[in-house]
Design a protein around this nucleic acid. Sequence first.
DNA 1: TATTCAGTTAAGTACAGCTTAACTGAGGCG
DNA 2: CGCCTCAGTTAAGCTGTACTTAACTGAATA
Lengths: 312, 312
Amino acid sequence: MSNRLPPLTALRAFDAAARHMSFAQAAAELNVTPAALSFQIKSLEEHLGAPLFRRLNRAVELTEAGTALSRGAAEGFQTLATAWRAAQRTQDTQTLTVTAGPAFTAKWLAPRLYEFAQSHPEIELRFAASLQRMDLMRDNVDVAIRFSSSVTPELYVLPLAEEWVMPVMTPALAAQYPTIESLTHAPIIFDDSVRFLKAPIAWSDWFAALGVSYNPTSGPRFSQADHALDAALAGVGIVMGRRALVVKDLAEGRLVAPFPTALATGARFSFLCLKGMENRPQIATFRDWILTEIEKTAHITDNLTILDLAAS
Amino acid sequence: MSNRLPPLTALRAFDAAARHMSFAQAAAELNVTPAALSFQIKSLEEHLGAPLFRRLNRAVELTEAGTALSRGAAEGFQTLATAWRAAQRTQDTQTLTVTAGPAFTAKWLAPRLYEFAQSHPEIELRFAASLQRMDLMRDNVDVAIRFSSSVTPELYVLPLAEEWVMPVMTPALAAQYPTIESLTHAPIIFDDSVRFLKAPIAWSDWFAALGVSYNPTSGPRFSQADHALDAALAGVGIVMGRRALVVKDLAEGRLVAPFPTALATGARFSFLCLKGMENRPQIATFRDWILTEIEKTAHITDNLTILDLAAS
DNA sequence: TATTCAGTTAAGTACAGCTTAACTGAGGCG
DNA sequence: CGCCTCAGTTAAGCTGTACTTAACTGAATA
């Protein structure tokens, strides 16, 4: 019983047969005749020294050995196919597939997409639905923007700007509540997405930092940061806005932050890609573009006091 | 750019070359000449339309495409090799590889091993070091005994006896503390492994069940149940013993449970194997043997009151 | 300058893996 | 009941993939 792999073509034939549970269909998939497939399976069974299929009247079924083999065979070939596609993808300098959370996609990427398309018409950006579990490898995604910093040896990780939070509102609302004391009567929008931070930041923390003892508890709650911001943009109330998600609205005057005190979160968005891929043209271009875009709104910080509660 | 897989022999050659970072070593591994390997790689590069290796003076290094391909290729072939070994294993009716936690191995399996070897000399039992993450597939393990009941469609799960806990001690210690009141002065051993239960059971729960208000807090603590039991067997004190781990010691008189009130935990050990494998001779034999062994000590429950705190 | 070492190239060969074609044996159907 | 169909097997022969040996390249070492 050798420890080496059996002939791979035979294994692939078996995989197809096991997936279809039919030699004829498997033969069709592999573009060979049923006869060829029959031989492949037979040769594999000889290698193993035991049958893999039980031949029935008009069907086949897996033996125990076949069952055991089929699981890993399917997975193995799947992995190989994905890897091959990943290699092909490196040859394609035109498309770039990016994944990000819904909030970052809606409030950072989407508003800047037009700018990117203008400056880099040669690159076709694609978005992959945001997955909690990010599979840069498995899902053929080139770049992920993630709000966490899990470090793995497989990944190239570039931390983007530090994330802080600060109350933001429409200019109209700001006019209604000009002082910090009056703000305690303003309608509050709760963004529950900050709960994922290691040290969640509460409204009372911010008021306390400005010397006001106030702990608001009632008001609309949103589990997604972008929904909370949309509500704030509609003038519903004031919201604790995360830097990355509000800078553009602040820069363009749709939102204002009349009290220029922000709280550091200790967290940041990071740019992730597989190690060794960070210098592929599209990826490097996209990374540089992100950094430039962040730089464009860096002046927001100029008049800002950023307090780090954890440090003090 | 075809979506189908490239020639598999070429892929395997590439995998070997990428793992060794040397064509010569890869050729040696595959028992072919370097010339053959060189051709294989070349053909793969032609399929891809781009080089996979950068040929340097005395070495080779992966290109970006090569890097992308090598990750999945290694994993894919690894998976295939494991699957093939799993298939080979089904042909072997002599050996059976079992994994279990340290406590179950030490206090249930080990003391009964001799009996198993006697009744089933045709089966060679092997033990795999207990892994938290159990990989019946990946690690070529046939059977796992686990103290949890995560249900996955891939697994055959057979719950074994319900687990309850009850104070146990040496007969000598029991003589010293004959009444429940006197027991409040006895040395207590804490088994922290019960913390993994959904509803952890504390000493105070048990005393309360017997109408005594007492919440011991000081005494030696063990993170592994078998170590706590070893201490109790040495006469160090009384310990909250889990059924599976103490029945044999109780049946043979090394430990006693003078107060026949046990608390249900709602948990149990389960017998796990890959679906479709449960009827392989060794696995079925081992399963039936476990059930018989449990039956042998079932009479322990006869004079026992088992309280379910969660139900009441 | 010669040697060695890693990889490439060339030419030839053998067998793995394919095809076509005929066979088996169980259902389904008129 | 006999005929057809369908899924898989077997046989015979062909093709080209994947191997071999042997000679070549070109940089590093001595």
